[in-house]
Design a protein around this nucleic acid. Structure first.
Length: 611
DNA sequence: ACCTAACCTG
DNA sequence: CAGGTTAGGT
């Protein structure tokens, strides 16, 4: 063959397809260029585009979802409307709307207060089933008629159950906080937007600052938010939102910042108090009375998808001076990590056994440690970062360098046999686990089991993998009998068998991909005759294969393999040249040919020699 | 139903 | 290389 054909750099993956795909094809898929936007500054442009986008959406997109957004609206409106707006609500609310809580006795101030706080929580958590506006207005009717000192005595439903005095204090301070919030917004929002008046007749007044806050907090979930309300209300809200933002961006921003800050604190405290009143939801004892308790609680709250809207929105707040508070709602890593770390440490220690303990006699015979791995120290460092090795472990690294070379595995190939007597960090019977043959990926929720299975589920090591790769030089389609003979040192379970079969399947996959690639290149390079296609040890094709199956290059590849490769390459070349590759299953015929070219695996692979 | 190979994806 | 999926064979 012409060696230049296989020289590096001549081929690139999928170039055939790309050759047929001209620049015209590609350009036809490019999006239309954006029109030159001379007015590219400021929020007005953004808002304009947003409004366009919103208006372009089909109406079904708005209203097909559930009620999460509406309850959110309720709660915010409920809590944050200045009393001025509440007065409007009390006189001009929708007469026909209804909310699912018919049996609330609104004449009872106490129950109304309870409902109010409960509604806050429900609104924050976006719980479905809250159909909205009227409840909020009714509650405003009641609550805004109260004196401020009465507000401080409010007790939510969950708090009443617990009957704790400290919680009562918490809640009192919380409501005091909210009261201050109202006061501040009354002060800031002294000017009424003229666009409001036209809509107030028809719809309950939606406080601008509330809407601002919602917009910032819910941008990510805007579609959800949008889809939740009634049509008319929705249309009104959109118009109002847009006009407001276009008119007073600076003030909006300022108010939004303050509102985000206050809202974060209020929500944080509210959720905190609720969760503290429910013992089952409390985190571990070391969190109690701790500064972390807030974040832990928020974490558990945010994990609940009911409040994802809230959590996400808070994450996106980008106001430096209030970031500290906003972060209290950011999802934190679950404490599961700690358990993982512990187990991984155990696993690391378990690996460090004397080299003489290497479980399989094969190891020392066919697999010297790969000399190409000069950067094992760095890899180890990286691994330790992941697995949680201690500094002492790092210091001892050199001692175990050799061993690490044999056990460090990129994925889930196990470093030890399940029958190894050195198993120390095992809290579950390895044989039991093996007999269960559980796919470890299926039980990721249990980190303990998962990590143990990582160690134990299969008795195949990297050295077995190396051996299998070398076997591939002889047999591409090994029978299960051959596999059992060659891997007699592992206990053959269904898992082991499948694993080995999968290995060879992957080997074949790589093999045939290379064949197709080089065959296509030969065609491109104008190789006119299959007789021009030969494969020698210097050819790029062989190098690629050898690099894959015999990376250490410490194994003399049999000539027979070169012949098989050559046959395979020619098969691909012919098939492609006559256009068989248009058939989806055109490779099957080739597979059929190649599977007959398997050789016997040498006895060295089958015997249990130890060197 | 079970196994296996091929294919696709990460 | 592993996981998942699909198709085909028994």
């Amino acid at each position: 063959m012409n060696p230049s054909i296989w020289s590096k750099g001549m081929y690139s993956p999928s170039n055939i397809c790309l050759d047929g795909c001209t620049a015209e094809h590609l350009s036809s898929f490019q999006p239309d260029p954006l029109p030159p936007d001379s007015d590219a500054s400021g929020a007005s442009v953004t808002l304009h585009k947003d409004s366009e986008k919103i208006n372009m959406l089909p109406e079904s997109a708005y209203y097909s979802r559930g009620d999460a957004g509406s309850s959110l609206i309720c709660s915010n409106q409920l809590e944050l409307n200045p009393s001025r707006d509440a007065v409007l609500l009390s006189t001009k609310r929708h007469p026909s709307s209804s909310c699912g809580h018919h049996d609330w006795n609104l004449n009872s101030g106490h129950q109304a207060k309870r409902a109010r706080v409960e509604n806050i929580i429900k609104g924050m958590t976006g719980s479905p089933g809250m159909h909205c506006t009227d409840v909020t207005t009714n509650q405003h009717e009641v609550s805004d008629g109260m004196q401020e000192n009465e507000r401080t005595q409010e007790l939510p439903l969950h708090q009443e159950r617990s009957g704790s005095g400290s919680m009562r204090k918490q809640l009192e301070s919380q409501h005091e906080h909210l009261r201050q919030l109202r006061t501040r917004f009354n002060h800031m929002d002294g000017i009424t937007d003229p666009t409001d008046s036209s809509n107030e007749d028809k719809y309950p007044h939606w406080d601008n600052s509330t809407e601002t806050s919602l917009r910032d907090a819910c941008t990510d979930s805007f579609g959800e938010f949008e889809s939740s309300s009634s049509r008319k209300y929705q249309g009104w809200k959109k118009v109002k939102l847009m006009s407001y933002f276009q008119s007073k961006p600076e003030r909006i921003r300022l108010m939004a910042d303050v509102l985000k800050y206050e809202l974060s604190r209020a929500v944080s405290k509210s959720v905190d108090s609720i969760f503290k009143s429910m013992p089952l939801l409390q985190t571990s004892p070391d969190d109690e009375g701790n500064v972390e308790s807030d974040s832990s609680l928020q974490s558990s709250v945010c994990k609940d998808n009911k409040v994802r809207l809230l959590c996400r929105g808070t994450e996106e707040v980008q106001v430096p001076d209030v970031q500290t508070e906003a972060l209290s709602l950011v999802v934190q890593k679950p404490r599961l990590d700690r358990a993982d770390k512990f187990i991984l440490q155990s696993r690391s220690r378990a690996h460090r056994r004397p080299k003489s303990q290497t479980p399989f006699g094969y190891d020392s015979a066919l697999s010297e440690e790969e000399p190409s791995e000069k950067n094992t120290a760095r890899q180890h460092a990286l691994r330790c970062l992941q697995d949680g090795c201690s500094d002492v472990d790092q210091a001892k690294y050199e001692t175990f360098d050799t061993h690490w070379n044999s056990v460090k595995v990129r994925s889930k190939v196990n470093s030890r046999s399940v029958r190894s007597p050195q198993t120390r960090s095992v809290s579950v019977d390895p044989l039991l686990l093996q007999s269960l043959c559980l796919p470890h990926v299926k039980i990721e929720s249990d980190s303990l089991v998962k990590n143990n299975l990582y160690m134990l589920n299969e008795g195949l090591t990297t050295n077995h993998l190396k051996k299998a790769k070398l076997m591939f030089f002889y047999t591409r389609y090994p029978s299960s009998l051959v596999l059992k003979m060659c891997f007699h040192d592992v206990q053959f379970t269904r898992c082991i068998t499948s694993q080995l079969i999968k290995w060879f399947s992957n080997f074949r996959e790589f093999y045939y991909i290379q064949m197709e690639k080089f065959a296509r290149h030969a065609l491109i390079e104008g190789v006119a005759d299959v007789r021009g296609l030969t494969v020698g040890r210097e050819s790029e094709l062989f190098r690629a294969l050898n690099m894959h199956y015999n990376k250490a290059n410490d194994f003399q590849v049999p000539d027979r393999f070169l012949e098989v490769v050559e046959v395979t390459l020619r098969e691909f070349y012919i098939a492609i040249s006559v256009g068989k590759d248009r058939d989806p299953s055109w490779k099957k015929a080739i597979y059929k040919v190649i599977c007959k070219l398997d050789s016997d695996v040498p006895a060295e692979f089958k015997s249990h020699h130890s060197g």
